[in-house]
Simulated assay, not measured.
Amino acid sequence: MTSQKRELRRAMRAARLTHWQALPATHRALIFGRPPRAILPLIEPAEVVGLYLSVPGEVPTERYAMHMLDIGKMIALPWTREHAGPMTFRLWTGSAETLVKGPWGPQPHAAMPEIIPDALFMPLVAFDSGLNRLGQGGGHYDSWCAAHPATRRIGLGWTVQQADAVPIDDHDMPLDAVITEQQVLLPINERTFP
Rank of each mutant, 00 (worst) to 15 (best):
S3M: 06
K5R: 15
R6I: 08
E7T: 10
E7Q: 14
R9W: 06
A11R: 15
A11E: 15
M12Y: 00
R13S: 03
R13W: 04
A15V: 00
T18G: 02
W20C: 01
W20T: 02
Q21H: 08
Q21V: 02
A22R: 14
L23M: 14
A25Q: 13
A25L: 13
T26F: 03
H27G: 00
H27T: 14
P35N: 06
P36A: 08
P36E: 03
I39H: 02
P41Q: 11
I43F: 08
V48P: 06
V48C: 13
V49I: 15
G50Y: 03
Y52M: 07
L53W: 07
S54I: 00
P56G: 08
E58R: 09
T61C: 09
R63V: 00
Y64Q: 05
Y64A: 03
A65L: 14
L69C: 04
K73S: 05
A76C: 11
L77H: 12
T80F: 03
R81G: 07
E82C: 12
M87L: 14
R90E: 09
L91E: 12
W92T: 04
T93N: 15
T93K: 10
G94E: 08
A96T: 13
E97C: 01
T98E: 15
T98C: 07
K101Q: 15
P103C: 12
G105N: 04
P106I: 11
P108I: 05
P108F: 05
P113G: 02
P113K: 09
I115P: 06
I115L: 13
P117R: 10
P117S: 09
D118H: 15
A119K: 11
L120G: 04
L120A: 12
L120T: 05
F121M: 12
F121Q: 04
M122K: 00
L124K: 08
A126G: 06
S129G: 12
L131W: 08
R133N: 06
G139A: 12
G139W: 07
G139P: 11
Y141D: 07
C145N: 06
C145M: 15
A150G: 01
T151K: 03
R152G: 00
R153I: 04
G155L: 05
L156G: 10
G157I: 03
V160Y: 01
Q162L: 06
A163K: 11
A163D: 10
A163W: 08
P167Q: 09
P167E: 11
P167T: 06
I168Q: 14
D170I: 06
D172T: 03
M173G: 00
L175W: 08
V178F: 01
I179S: 04
T180M: 03
V184C: 07
V184M: 04
V184Y: 05
L185H: 13
L186I: 06
I188H: 13
N189L: 04
N189H: 15
E190K: 15
T192R: 13
F193H: 10
F193Q: 01
P194V: 10
